[in-house]
Amino acid sequence: MSAILVTGADLAQQALDLLQDFDIVYAGKTPTEDDLVALCQQHDPVAIIVRYGKVGAAVMDAAPSLKVISKHGSGTDTIDKVAAKARGVEVVAAAGANAAAVAEQALALLLACAKSVVQLNARMHAGHWDKATHKSVELGGRTMGLVGLGAIGLRFARMADALGLRVIGFDPFAKDLPACVQSVDLATIWRESDAISLHCPLTDENRGMLNAATLAQCKRGVIVVNTARGGLIDEAALLAAVQSGQVMAAGLDSFAVEPMVANHPFHGEPRFILSPHIGGVTGDAYVNMGVGAAKNLLEVLARAPAALAAAS
Rank of each mutant, 00 (worst) to 15 (best):
Y26H: 13
A38N: 08
G56C: 02
D10H: 11
H72M: 11
R220A: 14
C218K: 10
L308G: 08
G96L: 09
S254Y: 03
V55K: 11
G8V: 01
P259M: 00
I168V: 03
A27M: 05
Q243V: 00
V147G: 04
P178Y: 02
T32P: 02
K29R: 14
R123P: 01
G28I: 02
K131C: 08
S193M: 05
P276S: 14
T143M: 07
A293G: 11
A132S: 12
Q13V: 06
D44Q: 13
G280I: 09
F173D: 05
L239N: 08
A151G: 02
G8S: 07
F22L: 07
L274F: 03
G290M: 12
D204P: 05
V287D: 05
G8H: 05
M260G: 01
L215H: 00
I223E: 10
A249F: 01
D21L: 05
I233N: 03
A250K: 05
D284P: 01
C40F: 08
G73F: 09
L298I: 04
F156Q: 10
M144L: 10
V281C: 13
G231A: 14
N98T: 13
R229K: 06
L165M: 15
A62H: 11
H125S: 07
I4F: 02
K54F: 07
N98K: 03
G145F: 05
R142P: 10
L165Q: 15
A212E: 14
D204S: 12
L198D: 09
D161Y: 11
V242D: 11
L36T: 02
G75A: 01
T282N: 13
S74A: 15
E258D: 03
G280A: 07
P172W: 12
L298G: 07
A160E: 09
A262R: 14
D77A: 00
D61H: 00
V147A: 10
T282P: 11
E299I: 01
A58T: 11
R191H: 13
A12L: 04
S244I: 14
L154Y: 01
R166Q: 14
T78R: 13
L298T: 04
T203Y: 12
A58W: 05
L110S: 11
A126I: 06
I49W: 04
V147C: 10
A132V: 03
A38V: 01
D80L: 10
A250T: 03
R271M: 15
F255D: 07
H134F: 12
E90K: 09
L301R: 05
E269F: 00
L107Y: 06
K115I: 03
V102C: 12
G141L: 05
E104W: 10
K115Y: 09
H267V: 10
K85T: 10
A100F: 09
G268N: 06
K71G: 02
A309D: 10
E138C: 00
K81E: 13
N211M: 08
